[in-house]
Design a protein around this nucleic acid. Sequence first.
DNA 1: TCAAAAGTGTTAGACTTACACCCATGT
DNA 2: ACATGGGTGTAAGTCTAACACTTTTGA
Lengths: 228, 228
Amino acid sequence: MHTPLNHDIRIAVSTVIFSLRARTEGDSLMIPLVKRTRDPHDGMWALPGGWLREDEGLEDAASRTLAETTALAPTWLEQLYAFGDVERAPTRVVSIVYWALLRSDHVEAQRAADGAPDNVEWFDVDDLPALAFDHNAIVEYAVWRLRNKVGYSRIAAGLLPDEFTLAELRSVYETVLGSRLDPSNFRRLLEGSEALVPTDSFRTGNHRPAQLFRYNAGPDLSTRGPIA
Amino acid sequence: MHTPLNHDIRIAVSTVIFSLRARTEGDSLMIPLVKRTRDPHDGMWALPGGWLREDEGLEDAASRTLAETTALAPTWLEQLYAFGDVERAPTRVVSIVYWALLRSDHVEAQRAADGAPDNVEWFDVDDLPALAFDHNAIVEYAVWRLRNKVGYSRIAAGLLPDEFTLAELRSVYETVLGSRLDPSNFRRLLEGSEALVPTDSFRTGNHRPAQLFRYNAGPDLSTRGPIA
DNA sequence: TCAAAAGTGTTAGACTTACACCCATGT
DNA sequence: ACATGGGTGTAAGTCTAACACTTTTGA
């Protein structure tokens, strides 16, 4: 007896890359998609990704395709799920999907520098076209995970610059969660959370200056990965 | 330019299978391991698993290897993580790992019927030998996930027969979490949770008879998978 | 009748939520 | 001076944890 070989199953690594983008009313949660230039699904939008190389780890592959797509390094990168249904593509492909957060200021800077990278476009997660393969379901699951994780970890700050006001951080939560939060309660909750440390700077602008905060360097104990 | 092919990366599917087993003092959380009969790591204990076949989905592969190892169907089966570091095995292998729960009564019945299946042995998760590959780290992560999930979902009952007393269910929580729970608070918490419905039967035995409960058929809304 | 587990009641504290209110700034 | 967001105070409601107490059985 012999176990059937699986050399004809290919492994792809794709990434759902989140960032925020200012809109007329409030921000939007956006992801970059790539227009496919070959069959299957030629011409449709798909998640950035590529084949796993023999000499790179899964997370390395995710970082690589992320960099190829956005020329940026993420503030957060985490495995989402391995999708491997037999019929999810015409040939047998197992996709190992990651999700990532990019700082909004980096994305804006990159966008200004680059003009428009070919075949890449940012879409509002609440207003996606029909995507290639099972990518709509994948994005939906990634959004669910992000929303969920925002509630019990400090990843929200991964969408902001190093220093930010509480209102800016609250706005991130509101955009991600899709609901309003009470400013005073939000402040108390986060101020009492250790992780957040005030700086000496203030954001001056339209009204009373707001104190800037940063996250301390310590590890986020509310979350853990498979290794440690 | 050509993307390097990845036909020499093989895909394995393994499963961390949890069940409870009565011990002198309290129960223990146990998993079955398989003794390897070939290199690499010949003779060491490893998670049950096998190569992914071209015509089966990931979850199907997990179910298959689970059945091959224990001749049982799980009450819970969920993807844990995809492990794909380059150096985790001498040849390049990406392991997609699932974790599962088995009802303790089924395991006991199966054990009695079968004698001892070759090369398979059950181990206490708190007292494992050095396992093949990175399997110790994988089990540790699976235990973390189980503990975590027990806190906010109803999966604990997946380790018990259909009907159980609240004390039995509490004992499962205590074994999994590794801490004692207040019986009265536990009762109130679960009785108020809808999902648990009382039956007309009572478990008679040493002391005052305890009412038997079962979980209602409805979906566990506290958890969700990648598809829906 | 007594030990032990089943099951009920009660209370103190923690945490959440809602909202009234004062503060500091740009216009 | 005033509109607006920054920031503080407070009280009601909910959730949690600890534990005293009553009930029901087997031995």
